[in-house]
Design a binder for these strands. Sequence first.
DNA 1: TACTTATTTAGCTTATAATCTAATTAGAGT
DNA 2: ACTCTAATTAGATTATAAGCTAAATAAGTA
Lengths: 106, 106
Amino acid sequence: MKINDVINAISHPIRRDIIKRLRKASLSAGELSQTYVVSKPTMSVHFKTLKAAELIYAQRAGNHIIYHLNTTVAEEALILIAQLLGTSEPQAHTDHNHRTSHEKIL
Amino acid sequence: MKINDVINAISHPIRRDIIKRLRKASLSAGELSQTYVVSKPTMSVHFKTLKAAELIYAQRAGNHIIYHLNTTVAEEALILIAQLLGTSEPQAHTDHNHRTSHEKIL
DNA sequence: TACTTATTTAGCTTATAATCTAATTAGAGT
DNA sequence: ACTCTAATTAGATTATAAGCTAAATAAGTA
């Protein structure tokens, strides 16, 4: 799992919405594409980006391609992002955290 | 807090590293910039991106600008990302989750 | 006031991402 | 084999992001 690929994948609103929908149920490329006002090839590129991040995987069912969420990768990525943005570990105290009189917030 | 701005901000390795360092201690622009092999103006743009996401804020101390992590925004963003990538809520069962014989994973 | 240091802004170039239309591939049904 | 539908790939355009050097700003010090 490459965190760069995952963050890149979730950096577009359409791709985030795809993830949210696939959390509820797996859906075909066509079903997913209907919702958005972009062309099908554009949607195909979004799927590719999500696949590159391994957040989704594809399964052929006859004429259709059904996309599934890869929950394992999603969870692993979330753990890394939590380490970045979370405040579970308390902040260390250093001299930089001292304030002196002439400092002002910009 | 705009999740788009935050995800955009954390989409670059240098900016993620800045966040990690500011979790431990607030640092000046110069101290932060030393570490990376890009020019200072480039670093300044990275700071701007992080400021636009409100993940950091600046404070002038004489000649220096000290950057601080905005932990509130970081935590709020993490909650939204957890709603996207987390599997706390169990996945709903739908017909799409049934498998039929001729389906194969790609 | 002039000089020095720290940082940002301006202007430019190059790389990457998003989007489109047209063409191609793959399977299902006739 | 032909045709229909679903989805992707190819090729092009446009927008955005990342990087650089040079110039500007802001504060501190001689």
